[in-house]
Write a protein that binds this DNA or RNA. Structure first.
Length: 782
DNA sequence: GCTACTCGGGG
DNA sequence: GTGTACGAGTAGC
């Protein structure tokens, strides 16, 4: 018998001689290994008294379990192979009959990917690309994780810029690889260069084969790319298919696997494929507005992509000229991707360890999935049975159910000075904990003791989910305590992971696809949230504060000459009376803020405001920010006007600025690029039932003999004329300078963008147009 | 207000 | 594969 220590990074299973064998791929003494485990039996749970018989059932055990607050006797029904489960589960009220086999193994054996385990057994013969170890026993050694070898991949294709990228037609012309002390750009045309990392082969197919070889030699544990689920890996596979060669990157010699669905996923057996774009997009969902590699890298790494004109690549390749800079560009993309993956790896690691699923999966999971898989893992620890997923009709029913959300205090439109903002720290998680909001503790028909909930209350004994969230919150507080004064990336990442899950549980209760879906819980949480908010607002007013705004968990007070310490003292008093771990905390102090009116009314718009801090940094919420189908002139005017107002410029100054923009538009001096609206064509032109402006443009482009299809970016300008917008839309090159419809841009773009701002500073937006009326009169009489 | 549609990331 | 999928914003009616 041999003993090895290893860190699993991937889990799957195979049927060998009619029995399932779990395979854990990972690292052992710096080398890739596949640890096989025989003898883990597939099973599911069945409720109810009735007898279940099926020839596929190998044995049935009886166990005492809890299920949604009830003690039940459940039958553990075993079958020979995982695929037997779907065939047998229909015969009873089954539970946990859809937990994938490899994941079931991880949960039951308490194996957390990336941690260190020891296996007893022996190496066996195989044709795999790594050694295969047959384990008799697997046990945890430590939670320590080993260093992972990361390889980033990026491809360039031969695509006419602006056209749809078609894998069947457009060859791959360069492939960049970037690892630790490893960089390479493969290509199949010779060109002069001083770059040491270029390797030239004779054809695309040779390049694909060389790529496969390089991956095999480098032996990465992690393969990463930017949007590689939807682009690089499927593309590599498609090109390999075309040449009837293979893209068998899997350690078990399997192909790249593409999961079809709404969201594409590419998988490689034994190597964790991380599409770092997906992870970034979830992690920074609210923090970033753009998720292009250049912007994300700029934000997280402080450096952007290599500056090239990508639209020149196509011709450059044809003419075999100027290719060096594109090779550099290609490598830079791979390098940035590599560095993003390295930088975010601690976060992926901590999420993996917390949720207990392999990194390739944890990195792609939505918030509700993270919560769900965490709860499934915990359920096993708590001897709880996992509820089933909703069926189609149940899901549809849930989709239309709605309920009251957070409390929003309606602001009085205006410009304010010296604003202090307080937040309830983790409002919903702390409510779940403090008020024991758990599906297994619901008591219907009884009001809560504090009088907040009517017709429902929650028992005193801690429930499953409220216990789980309690643990999560407490662990997070301990870690934050430990991390104090230190710069520990993994501690920071761990508290982030805990926060992510804690913050997602409320949304999970109300998510239509959730196993522990519970609208009563979701409603109770928001009811408590509204109660506590209203309570604070009322008390603030009582002691003489001017409450200007409040939304769900935050409240803004105008100091109006009061010292900030008066506000702190007030909040201290509030905190003493809040139940459990609930707490109101200081968020920030702002020197000015603007709140606008709702459309067509006098009342203050909710969720639409801008604040400016001492350093002049703006915090803009709810205004039209960066939407590409809004013209630049509208976006820029709004941004600038907001800035001026918050900096304390007079209403005359701001009005003059906007009037200037209007004047420029009307006097036809605005550059065409400022009035261009861009939209992409997504499908075949003929298949549109309705014709929006950009489709009308696309049709005309077709008539002119231009190739227009899915992927084409259509830019258009609304020109002067009669009828609906689509009849007046023209291609930017068709319009002469100043041919745009000034009135459209003034009234439909600029004015809506700044109108409400102008009202706040005492300007009737109509006044901004008056110049034209005068002009009209002049021309009439002139 | 509802429905149809687009977009994101990638070249 | 013992599974599975988005989510927000806009134009047109």
């Amino acid at each position: 018998m041999a003993k090895i220590a290893f860190n699993p990074v991937e889990a799957t299973y195979k049927i060998i001689d009619g029995s399932p064998v779990v395979e854990l791929y990972g690292k052992s003494s710096g080398k890739q290994v596949c640890v096989q485990f025989h003898g883990f039996e597939p099973y599911f749970w069945a409720l109810g008294e009735s007898e279940i018989t099926d020839e596929k059932i190998t044995k049935i055990e009886k166990h005492k379990k809890s299920f949604l607050g009830k003690e039940v006797e459940a039958k553990k029904v075993f079958v020979k192979i995982p695929a037997d489960v779907p065939a047998v589960r229909e015969k009873s009220d089954s539970l946990e009959a859809d937990i994938p086999f490899a994941r079931r193994f991880l949960i039951d054996r308490k194996i957390t990917p990336l941690a260190t385990y020891e296996a007893d057994g022996a190496f066996v013969e195989s044709d795999y690309k790594c050694e295969v170890f047959r384990a008799e026993k697997i046990g945890i050694v430590s939670e320590e994780i080993s260093e992972q070898k990361v390889l980033a991949v990026d491809i360039e294709t031969h695509t006419d810029f602006g056209k749809e990228i078609i894998p069947e037609n457009d060859p791959i012309i360069m492939i960049a690889l970037h690892g630790n002390n490893f960089r390479k750009v493969l290509t199949w045309k010779h060109f002069d260069n001083n770059l040491g990392y270029i390797e030239v082969v004779d054809s695309e197919v040779e390049m694909l084969e060389r790529f496969r070889e390089l991956v095999e030699e480098y032996k990465p544990d992690i393969l990463t790319g930017y949007f590689s689920d939807g682009f690089d890996l499927p593309y590599l596979k498609a090109r390999a298919d075309k040449y009837r060669t293979n893209m068998k990157l899997g350690l078990d010699n399997s192909e790249i696997m593409l999961r079809k669905g709404n969201v594409p996923v590419a998988e490689i057996t034994g190597i964790a494929h991380i599409d770092i774009f997906k992870f970034v997009k979830r992690m920074f969902r609210t923090a970033f507005t753009s998720f292009k590699l250049n912007d994300v890298a700029q934000e997280l790494l402080g450096q952007g992509k290599a500056q090239v004109k990508l639209e020149e690549l196509y011709a450059s390749w044809n003419e075999e000229k100027g290719l060096e800079k594109f090779a550099e560009y290609n490598l830079t993309d791979a390098k940035l991707t590599y560095e993003l993956c390295i930088k975010l790896w601690p976060n992926i690691t901590e999420l993996t360890k917390m949720i207990g699923v392999p990194p390739a999966e944890a990195s792609r999971m939505s918030f509700s999935q993270l919560v769900e898989w965490y709860l499934i893992k915990e359920a096993h620890e708590f001897n709880e049975l996992v509820p089933n997923r909703p069926d189609f009709s149940e899901e549809r029913k849930r989709r239309v159910e709605s309920y009251t959300g957070g409390y929003v205090y309606e602001p009085t439109p205006g410009l304010y000075k010296d604003i202090v903002v307080y937040d309830f720290r983790s409002l919903y998680p702390t409510i779940i904990s403090a008020h024991n909001i758990s599906p297994d503790r619901i008591i219907l028909g009884k009001d809560s003791e504090d009088g907040v909930l009517k017709g429902i209350s929650f028992g005193k004994e801690k429930g499953f989910i409220s216990t789980v969230i309690d643990n999560v919150i407490n662990r997070r507080l301990r870690i934050k305590e430990m991390a104090k004064g230190k710069e520990d990336k993994s501690l920071e990442a761990r508290q982030q992971a805990l926060k992510t899950v804690a913050n997602s549980i409320y949304g999970y209760y109300g998510f239509f696809g959730a196993r522990w879906y519970n609208l009563d819980c979701a409603k109770a949480i928001t009811a408590y949230g509204r109660h506590h908010m209203q309570d604070v607002i009322e008390k603030a007013k009582t002691v003489g504060f001017n409450v200007i705004y409040g939304d769900t968990d935050s409240i803004m007070l105008a100091l109006e000459g009061k010292h900030i310490s008066a506000a702190s003292k007030f909040v201290e008093g509030i905190n003493k009376k809040l139940p459990g771990i609930m707490e109101l905390e200081f968020e920030g102090l702002y020197k000015s803020g603007i709140f606008v009116a709702t459309k067509g009314r006098e009342t203050g718009a909710k969720k639409r405001y801008a604040l400016m801090d001492e350093e002049g940094k703006m915090k803009v919420r709810g205004f039209e920010t960066v939407r590409r189908n809004l013209s630049l002139i509208a976006k820029q005017t709004q941004q600038k006007a907001l800035e001026m107002i918050l900096q304390g410029k007079t209403s005359n100054e701001v009005a003059e600025f906007v009037k200037d923009v209007v004047k420029q538009l009307r006097s036809k001096q605005t550059e065409t690029r400022m009035v261009v609206i861009k939209t992409q064509i997504s499908r075949d032109i003929k298949s549109y039932a309705n014709i929006p402006p950009h489709v009308a443009i696309a049709k005309r482009m077709q008539e002119q003999g231009k190739k227009v299809g899915p992927g084409t970016m259509v830019s258009y300008v609304v020109a002067e004329g009669k009828g609906v917008i689509r009849d007046r839309s023209k291609l930017p090159e068709e319009v002469a300078a100043g041919e745009y419809d000034a009135e459209y841009y003034v009234r439909n773009q600029v004015l809506p963008a700044v109108g409400k701002l102008m009202e706040v500073i005492g300007y009737n937006p109509e006044e901004l147009l008056e110049e034209r009326q005068q002009k009209k009169l002049e021309t009439f009489f002139g």
